[in-house]
Amino acid sequence: MRDVKKHAQRRKLFARPFSKTVLRSTWEPVVRGKVQLMISQIQKDLTTLGVCDVFKWSTFLATDVSAHLMFGESFEMLQRGEKNEYIRILESVIQGSGILFELPFLGYIVPCIPLQSVREMFGNGEALLRYGQSLLNNSRSNSESSRNIFSGLVHASEKDGASFNDIDVAIEAGNLIVAGSDTTAVTLTYLIWAILSRPKLHTQLGNELATLRENWEEGDLESLSLLNATITETLRLYGAAPGALPRSVPEGGVTFSGYYIPGGVTVSTQSWTIHRDPVLFPNPEKFDPSRWLPGDNQASEQARLAMSPFGSGSRTCLGIHLSWMELRLATAEFFLQCGNVKWAPSVTEESMKPKHFFLIAPSAHKCKITLAT
């Protein structure tokens, strides 16, 4: 959305339901329940199969959470242990969009390619929209499912005289599921991988989690310095969307660092390079949570300002508080209930090397754990 006023109006509608206060008071029990279901499925796989794919269950968790909040009903991927049609189409569209972003000329060639797989990757936007509208209709017809973020948004938009119709809702819901599913799943996978790969960190984190009160909540986790430092360092090195974020220069142009940029020119930043700047982050490829803890190694104020895994400014990711809630809850529950695990032999530095489209993912698209002996 390029119009500044329309964007500000739309973002204002989303501000309250995605605030930390509302998420904790309204949605924490839902998120917590799905995290616990994920943990039980992981434990079941470890018991029956001997191995478990953390990436798979992280994806199911993040997607079910997003769907429940957006549509008022879960996709039940955690219960079924498999992706549904909406997510299959969504992943295909994401992959195709990432390729077209880098190679826009393919948009003229793709319609001439008679392969079904290619057509699915680059031509499923309309199918995604239809599916989203169907989900919205289903949620409205079910009183149990009517409690969702968009039901309140539609009412608020009508009250304020804003335009927010069913198509807008379906598009925004789809966008937010994209923003909140694979992104959180990728970060959670790399987070668990980073901790299990470092026995000392694993032990220290376990000791910190052991200090939690009996009926702890997500707010209690916010005070755990090592847990939050480890999440932040994971977001620095393995932020799920490290690619270019294009923006249009306003009319009249701007002067930036001594360079004049004309209005209408597309500019972009990308966090992958910024987060690996050795001036800001000494030894930048090293996974080091102590950067975010008090001490001699603490990151500078400039480095903290440069951290942008969720973007920055007026277009910062709306789901930042939801993502942090999921990452905190899932990490805490995992290491409290699945402490006796290790990486399966198939997990290597090469298999975990990030593979880029618009989002990153482990090259193997799997990340398996097994019980430690």
Results as ranks from 00 to 15, higher is better:
residue 147 R to W: 06
residue 109 I to P: 01
residue 133 Q to N: 07
residue 142 N to M: 06
residue 113 I to M: 05
residue 126 E to A: 11
residue 96 G to E: 02
residue 84 N to V: 09
residue 77 M to P: 07
residue 142 N to R: 15
residue 69 L to P: 00
residue 130 R to K: 15
residue 146 S to P: 00
residue 105 F to Q: 09
residue 98 G to K: 04
residue 74 S to A: 03
residue 127 A to W: 01
residue 142 N to S: 14
residue 65 V to W: 00
residue 65 V to H: 00
residue 147 R to E: 11
residue 82 E to T: 11
residue 98 G to R: 08
residue 66 S to N: 10
residue 120 E to C: 11
residue 102 E to K: 13
residue 111 P to N: 06
residue 93 V to D: 06
residue 66 S to M: 15
residue 124 N to G: 15
residue 135 L to F: 05
residue 79 Q to F: 07
residue 119 R to M: 06
residue 126 E to S: 10
residue 92 S to Q: 14
residue 101 F to W: 09
residue 97 S to L: 14
residue 136 L to G: 15
residue 149 I to A: 02
residue 79 Q to P: 07
residue 139 S to R: 12
residue 112 C to Q: 09
residue 91 E to K: 09
residue 77 M to L: 09
residue 85 E to W: 00
residue 106 L to T: 06
residue 70 M to H: 03
residue 105 F to V: 15
residue 146 S to E: 12
residue 74 S to L: 06
residue 67 A to M: 04
residue 114 P to E: 08
residue 80 R to E: 11
residue 127 A to S: 12
residue 140 R to S: 07
residue 97 S to A: 14
residue 71 F to I: 05
residue 132 G to V: 00
residue 102 E to A: 14
residue 89 I to S: 02
residue 144 E to C: 08
residue 84 N to L: 01
residue 96 G to M: 06
residue 83 K to W: 07
residue 131 Y to C: 10
residue 72 G to V: 07
residue 71 F to S: 03
residue 73 E to K: 13
residue 86 Y to S: 07
residue 129 L to K: 13
residue 114 P to F: 04
residue 118 V to A: 09
residue 73 E to L: 12
residue 106 L to A: 03
residue 64 D to C: 00
residue 68 H to A: 12
residue 78 L to H: 05
residue 67 A to W: 00
residue 92 S to G: 15
residue 131 Y to A: 12
residue 145 S to K: 13
residue 110 V to W: 07
residue 105 F to H: 13
residue 117 S to K: 13
residue 142 N to C: 10
residue 76 E to T: 09
residue 117 S to D: 06
residue 74 S to R: 05
residue 91 E to N: 15
residue 84 N to A: 03
residue 87 I to H: 05
residue 102 E to M: 14
residue 99 I to V: 13
residue 139 S to T: 10
residue 88 R to Q: 12
residue 139 S to D: 09
residue 130 R to M: 15
residue 145 S to E: 10
residue 87 I to M: 04
residue 130 R to Q: 15
residue 127 A to N: 09
residue 141 S to H: 09
residue 98 G to L: 00
residue 133 Q to E: 13
residue 134 S to C: 08
residue 133 Q to P: 07
residue 87 I to N: 01
residue 125 G to I: 03
residue 132 G to K: 02
residue 73 E to A: 13
residue 113 I to P: 01
residue 128 L to S: 08
residue 106 L to E: 08
residue 66 S to P: 05
residue 77 M to A: 04
residue 80 R to I: 01
residue 90 L to V: 01
residue 95 Q to P: 01
residue 121 M to F: 03
residue 103 L to V: 11
residue 131 Y to S: 14
residue 138 N to V: 12
residue 101 F to I: 06
residue 96 G to A: 00
residue 149 I to R: 02
residue 106 L to C: 00
residue 127 A to P: 02
residue 76 E to L: 11
residue 85 E to R: 00
residue 135 L to S: 01
residue 111 P to E: 08
